[in-house]
Design a protein around this nucleic acid. Structure first.
Length: 428
RNA sequence: GGAGACGUGGCCGAGAGGCUGAAGGCGCUCCCCUGCUAAGGGAGUAUAGGGUUUGUAGCUCUAUCGAGGGUUCGAAUCCCUCCGUCUCCGCCA
């Protein structure tokens, strides 16, 4: 959520910034509502003040044994006036909140302006795509040939876009998770284990609700078929439970930055993506991810984004997987993000770089709704800045390893860094 | 799942319709005093929003005693719903 004060004092500027990401802010509407808000809020508060002082007088009179009937008569219609004003103020505020909830974050000044993913800017490349002297296979062909991947079984027991992994591939996935968490924990990220189902407040805190409910899986308690506020949702990313650890919390300044790493499955209904990446593990309703989350001092969030991105990159480097780093342009950046780097790994099966991590600085956009704050030496609590990034998407890492480390006979060489996690095995 | 108790400021803990944003204590901050230490005295110590304003200064108003509704001129206090905690029983990994 943007700062409502910015919308009052700097509306034209905010609208201009939002326009670069293709969002049209209805300036006239907001100005009109804001004028109404002011009018009714002031009126309601004045009436409340009047009511409070009158009620005190009545209390005093009564305790002195005086007749309070005249005083009561005096404020007879105060109540209805107050109710009206309060209702009106609430109404206007609700409309403003509604608009505000749908307004995306303003991009940081360093974000390139553009309309679509075609305008994203590659900022660096690491590693050389390997030259193969045989015909490369994609991960599905490689895995199916070895009996590691069973799409039919997944469809039978659930539906499409789920997967059943078997044998070495299942084990490789588990090894990857362990490897990634260990790397991040060694770099100072605190390991946390969190629920995979969350409530609406949490999803609002990180910005998935109200706008993106269609992407989520909702769980209703079966005793009540009607939906209500206590329905839970499967997490689309560990970002939600981990960042919400700090909802309504005030952290001492010397405790910043807070860095966390968590492994969770992620559940996405991916509404609207049918037909894209239907083959294999690239786009699934359930996948494993190791997530990095940081809460930092507002002045340090952009350097923290560089650190966090480098931390995610270090996994790819240790696994010796070629990748590139892309800055998302204003038109491609996520709803809550002020700046995002995508890490794209080289997939020989597709002869393309594909997203394997997304690292974002949300500045105070999430923190505002979360009420995630810190207290400095001097004075009031201030909002922290929040960041997160995948470190990495495990399913896609699995794909990348299979495809990049495949051998002519269909076997897979184990990246050196992972061998300790697989009992020293060198080839699968 | 059944029965009961309870949710108040950073913490402990009073309050049981009005003068309570909330006694008292602990903690913390500042000041005074004491040659060190210990003790003592004084002051301060929530958050959010609005109005005024060049202002994150000052002044002022409003809201908040788990959350949301209700009753009332007036609610921390009464009523309802929900959430959570604790104890006992049942069940289970």
């Amino acid at each position: 959520m943007l700062d409502p004060k910015r919308l009052r004092s700097d509306l034209a500027n905010v609208a201009a910034q939002l326009k670069t990401r293709g969002y049209e802010l209805d300036v006239a509407q907001i100005e009109a509502l804001e004028a109404q808000r002011k009018e009714w809020q002031v009126k309601a508060q004045d009436l409340q003040a009047l009511r409070n002082s009158r009620s005190k007088e009545i209390g005093k009179a009564k305790s002195q044994g005086q007749d309070i009937a005249p005083l009561l008569a005096e404020i007879e219609d105060l109540k209805t006036q107050l109710e009206q004003a309060e209702q009106k103020a609430d109404e206007v505020q609700l409309q403003l909140d509604d608009i505000l909830a749908g307004v995306p974050n303003t991009p940081h000044e360093s974000v390139p302006v553009g309309n679509s993913e075609d305008d994203n800017v590659e900022i660096r490349k690491w590693g050389e795509p390997r030259q193969f002297d045989f015909d490369v296979k994609d991960h599905v062909d490689l895995a199916e040939a070895r009996g590691w991947f069973d799409n039919d079984a997944a469809v039978k027991i659930t539906s499409s876009r789920f997967s059943v992994l078997k044998g070495s591939m299942a084990r490789l996935q588990r090894a990857l998770i362990q490897f990634m968490i260990d790397q991040h924990a060694n770099a100072g990220y605190e390991e946390v284990y969190v629920p995979f189902m969350v409530n609406q407040d949490s999803l609002r805190g990180t910005g998935q609700l109200p706008k993106f409910e269609a992407d989520l899986y909702k769980i209703s308690k079966n005793e009540e078929h009607d939906t209500n506020d206590r329905d839970l949702y499967l997490i689309p990313t560990a970002e939600v439970p981990v960042t919400n650890l700090f909802r309504d919390e005030i952290i001492e300044e010397d405790q910043l930055p807070r860095k966390c790493v968590a492994h969770t499955p992620c559940f996405r209904s991916e509404a609207g993506s049918y037909g894209r990446d239907t083959r294999g593990l690239i786009r699934q309703h359930q996948f494993e991810k190791v997530e990095l989350v940081q809460l930092v001092h507002p002045e340090k969030s952009h350097e923290a984004l560089e650190e966090l991105t480098a931390q995610a990159e270090s996994i790819l480097q240790k696994l010796e997987l070629p990748y590139r780093v892309v800055t998302l342009c204003t038109g491609d950046i996520g709803f809550s993000s002020a700046k995002t780097y995508d890490l794209e790994v080289w997939l020989p099966g597709q002869e393309a770089y594909r997203e394997i991590s997304s690292c974002s600085n949300f500045e105070d956009f999430q923190a505002r709704r979360l009420k995630a704050r810190f207290r400095g030496a001097k004075g009031k609590p201030q909002l922290v800045h929040t960041l997160n990034g995948s470190g990495l998407a495990v399913g896609r890492t699995l794909v990348a390893i299979l495809e990049n480390y495949q051998n002519a006979d269909g076997s897979i060489t184990v990246p050196a860094a992972l061998r300790p996690y697989l009992g020293g095995i060198e080839t699968l």
